[in-house]
């Protein structure tokens, strides 16, 4: 589903090499965690998959497509295949929860009736059905995070990427959210979740990819405590 082949990412402005020679493969339906210190390149790796950034060197295939060969015009269609969740939620403050979550369907020209049905379903799933008409500012951090998750899942993308989705949440909420991800994984969604909270993910017994200074380290989850 996702395949990195000798991918490097270099930022010429700062001279910083964020990722060095990454070789990585995520199978369809796999759920994996991306760990490492801040600045290890976790966010950059996720951004490459969502085509928010382009690799400096190497090849990257997502869902059968070589992202280097994606034209400007094809980028939006690629992003519709990839649900992205950010630590800072990236919600629109002047829109209601409902409208925030509906956005991926609106931009994809889904019919009104279908949008209503699917948004309600996904809000039920993340436990925010009652907050549909609230504005993000009136929600707690955990609720905002769940709005972000609902937005990433509403269009049922085959791939979901999450960057520190439990960053500011208490352990209980974090476990809830991880449970939500596991649940989606069971229906076949490929997930890649960046987190520094190893104690939270170890019980899940999923693959852990450890990044250190832009390089993939041999995966030994037990080393990371």
């Amino acid at each position: 589903m996702i395949r990195f082949q000798a991918v490097s990412k270099h930022y010429p402005a700062t001279g910083h090499e964020a990722l060095t020679h990454i070789d990585l493969h995520l199978a369809t339906g796999e759920m994996a965690f991306l760990t490492g210190h801040s600045g290890a390149g976790k966010s950059t790796l996720l951004k490459l998959i969502g085509r928010l950034e382009t690799p400096t060197r190497g090849q990257l295939w997502v869902n059968g497509r070589n992202l280097n060969k994606l034209t400007q015009r094809q980028i939006p269609y690629h992003r519709r295949q990839v649900g992205m969740i950010f630590q800072d939620h990236r919600l629109l403050p002047q829109r209601t929860v409902y409208n925030n979550v509906a956005l991926p369907l609106v931009v994809a020209s889904v019919r009104h009736q279908d949008i209503r049905r699917r948004v309600q379903a996904v809000l039920n799933k993340v436990g925010l059905a009652r907050k549909a008409n609230s504005y993000p500012i009136s929600l707690s951090g955990g609720e905002q995070q769940r709005v972000g998750i609902a937005r990433a899942l509403v269009s049922k993308p085959p791939i979901v990427l999450a960057d520190e989705p439990t960053g500011n949440l208490d352990p209980e909420l974090s476990r809830d959210i991880m449970g939500l991800f596991t649940e989606f994984n069971t229906v076949g969604v490929t997930l890649l979740i960046a987190t520094h909270d190893v104690s939270l993910i170890r019980p899940l017994r999923k693959r852990i990819i450890h990044l250190q200074q832009g390089r993939v380290q041999p995966a030994h989850p037990t080393d990371n405590s």
Binding site: P76, H78, R79, L92, L103, P104, V107
Partner: peptide, 16 residues
């Protein structure tokens, strides 16, 4: 700007 950026993030085409 923010709204446009988020629309691009969730797959809004330039035409949209």
């Amino acid at each position: 700007q923010d709204e446009i950026a988020i629309m691009q993030l969730v797959g809004g085409t330039q035409a949209f």
